[in-house]
Amino acid sequence: MRIFVTDQDGTEHELEALEGWRVMEVIRDWGLNIKAECGGSCACATCHVFVDPEWQDKLNPPTDEEEDMLDSVADYEANSRLSCQILMSEELDGLRVTLADSARQEEAA
């Protein structure tokens, strides 16, 4: 299984993913720039990604908890999601996301 992640500099990375892993964990373990400060507890919004519009409908819709956390991303767009709330499964093989600026380890200057 793989996912395609575009980083904040616009470079696309093809990452191997495992069933049951959170997309945030895949991105973090491959060493891309993601802060994920709360470790996946839906409590920080620093794992913010933009989901490719073609994939948006294939994801489970955000829970109320995720919607609430999305209120605290200043660069919100209609396809914003928290990558720690997306679990990898067969259906998501090939998922495309872009890392948001607000997910950077050191906030952009």
């Binding site: 920080c44 620093t46 991303v73 200043a74």
Partner: peptide, 9 residues
């Protein structure tokens, strides 16, 4: 007054 919560540095 922007209120987007806190982050750690």
């Amino acid at each position: 007054l922007p209120f987007f919560g806190l982050t750690m540095k």
